[in-house]
Design a protein around this nucleic acid. Structure first.
Lengths: 100, 100
DNA sequence: TCTAAATATGTAAATATTTGTATATCTAAA
DNA sequence: TTTAGATATACAAATATTTACATATTTAGA
């Protein structure tokens, strides 16, 4: 397997994880807060149900977009900075937030 | 429907269309060539079958990522520049092409 | 008109995603 | 130890995606 292929595969995994309006909104939210948010924070901010929010967060985590850490009963999610590609996309979203 | 929602919806439509390794490679190819490519050009460059290539191109076109024009028996596909978001993502891909 | 090249579509099977509802698990505090 | 809050998971139905293979359609040129 060539290195190019691995790079494309990783990026498509990230893009695939982001391919849902709710998940893009989660990325936007976290990129603006520049911090960690609990599942409750996120589901209340976005008006999604708790289970749906939890599932979207898990998709994002499995796709390397987010990481999480437990603190008591809470799970805090935050952007995974292992891949600059993710911040780059978040920047595109923020920069062009009014583009229709 | 708020304007923000429409913007997010459009972006998620674009991201969703891109959520496949072959389709990311097509975007890369077209962003580097800075021009139009026929279906045959693309399927030979990427080593995909013709029908699969055609289908991916149609997904990209339906997702507003590409446009096309017919010229004789050929269809030429090219990046849709109506959405800066698309070039922005292509730039992220090119800039971080070696990131694993 | 016939043919070959280029592209798109039909069909079908396998697989994956989305979403609601209910419920289980885990943690902290009373 | 019981309770409430926070999070994750089970289940199931609906829907969408992917892929292979065969074939249809369109176009230009012999």
């Amino acid at each position: 397997m060539k290195k190019v292929d691995d790079s494309i595969k990783k990026k498509s995994e990230i893009i695939k994880a982001l391919a849902h309006p709710a998940r893009l909104e989660i990325l936007l939210l976290l990129s603006r807060k520049k911090g960690k948010m609990s599942v409750t924070d996120i589901h209340e901010s976005l008006g999604l149900t708790q289970p749906e929010t939890s599932r979207h967060l898990i998709v994002l985590k499995n796709g390397s977009v987010l990481n999480s850490e437990k603190k008591g009963a809470n799970s805090f999610y935050f952007i995974n900075d292992e891949h600059s590609f993710i911040r780059c996309i978040a920047n595109c979203m923020n920069k062009l937030k009014d583009e229709q």
